[in-house]
Design a protein around this nucleic acid. Structure first.
Lengths: 223, 223
DNA sequence: TTGGTGGGTGGAACGACGTTCCAGCAATAT
DNA sequence: ATATTGCTGGAACGTCGTTCCACCCACCAA
């Protein structure tokens, strides 16, 4: 249980949870979710797996800590949007961009419940919902809806990043998927075929924001 | 590549992808996501791991097939809701209830992109969006928003189910989490503390539906 | 009827993973 | 100087997904 109180630095190369998490984030960013292994992590830290386990209970806790570490920066400042709507968009886009930069965060957010990172996002969203002037009874549902939508997009973005071959560009992937949609059975997938061209040219970030705005529209409609 | 064309049944106990998927679903339902193993699966089918690999490429494909198999039933019939709004609610609740009954589906939906099951949900949602009479340019965004929201809830429900100890009731879990929210730092989590009591008494299914209605409200607001 | 062919089987084995264990080291306290 | 404690790092364990391959048996040609 890493009390870490008495002496701050017994050796110059002292291990610490912070250093471990930092190395884990680097590894995740470079090699993806499957690249984080206690073996390569301990090699990078020039130690053995056992030493890491003295600071971190298990891999799950390490992933949570890594997610928190990255999202802490994004969620540090209170949103400065002029209106509550803009503040909500700001929070949502902050999370979106963080996931875009570190796709493994998306997997983590979508997989693990009641993580402190998710809770902080929930809090930021909820405060702005309160400022929106809708009935108090709707606050909980509205904040939850926004959070779940964001987590849903997070999971999908992470899945897309995971399944993408290193050599292909964004347009390649979208183009291929768009053609797949266009070639679907017309009887079974009329709608999906209709929007196939839009898939090719759409911007993930803009569409994400459009979804936020739809929920926001529904919330403000309660006034 | 399992052509499976010429002869329908070489032996009475013939293995097939269907039988494998069926056994996998049983295993997932009984033992959870970590309970599905090629070893116990092959034991249950009275064969070896190698035989399974003749019919299924890998575990990922097996999980996709299992998810599709369960959701196929839910998505078979066109929604019979009187209004497009009700039809959308019906599709969403069908998926929600399926995840409630088989939590592992939630993990799978939230994790894997462009799965055929997700595509079928998207199609059902999109058709009803078309019937809603909103501008065509908004169809893609609206259907995506609904799908992402549903997938987000799916992932969270699966995560909740995963982290729940076998002995505890729903009220225990909610009560504990509610107390945790209530005990958060008032300076940092004012909103979350405010809604803590609502967390204890809320109904997941109703809240899910409330979220769908918020998006629906935003969409119909575009008319 | 018989012999060969090949789709399908199942069990052994491989490599990698998360995790545990423990002998030892380096600072501090006695 | 010695004992204690916090911490290290490497070996080892059990399990997993996956691969390999010797074998079997239903079919087909002769």
């Amino acid at each position: 249980m890493a009390t870490r109180t008495r002496h701050t630095d017994r050796r110059g190369d002292a291990l610490s949870k912070e250093r471990i998490v930092e190395a884990a984030v680097d590894l995740l960013d470079e090699a993806g979710e499957s690249g984080l292994t206690f073996r390569v992590l301990s090699a990078q830290l020039k130690t053995g797996p056992g030493a890491i386990y003295w600071h971190v209970a298990n891999k799950s806790e390490l992933l949570v800590a890594a997610t928190d570490a990255v999202l802490a920066g994004v969620l540090a400042a209170d949103p400065a949007g002029a209106t509550p709507e803009n503040a909500i968009r700001e929070v949502a886009l902050g999370v979106f961009d963080a996931i875009d930069a570190h796709p493994w965060i998306g997997t983590q957010l979508a997989r693990v419940a009641s993580q402190s990172a998710a809770l902080r996002i929930f809090e930021r969203l909820g405060r702005q919902i309160q400022a929106l002037g809708v009935p108090e009874t709707a606050h909980f549902d509205a904040a939850s809806a926004l959070l779940n939508y964001i987590l849903g997009v997070a999971g999908q973005n992470a899945a897309n990043a995971r399944s993408q071959d290193p050599g292909t560009t964004r347009l390649d992937v979208l183009g291929a998927e768009s053609e797949l949609w266009a070639s679907l059975d017309p009887a079974e997938f009329p709608f999906t075929r209709t929007v196939a061209p839009q898939l090719r040219d759409h911007d993930d970030r803009e569409q994400f924001l459009a979804g936020v705005d739809l929920i926001l529209g529904g919330v403000t409609g309660l006034r």
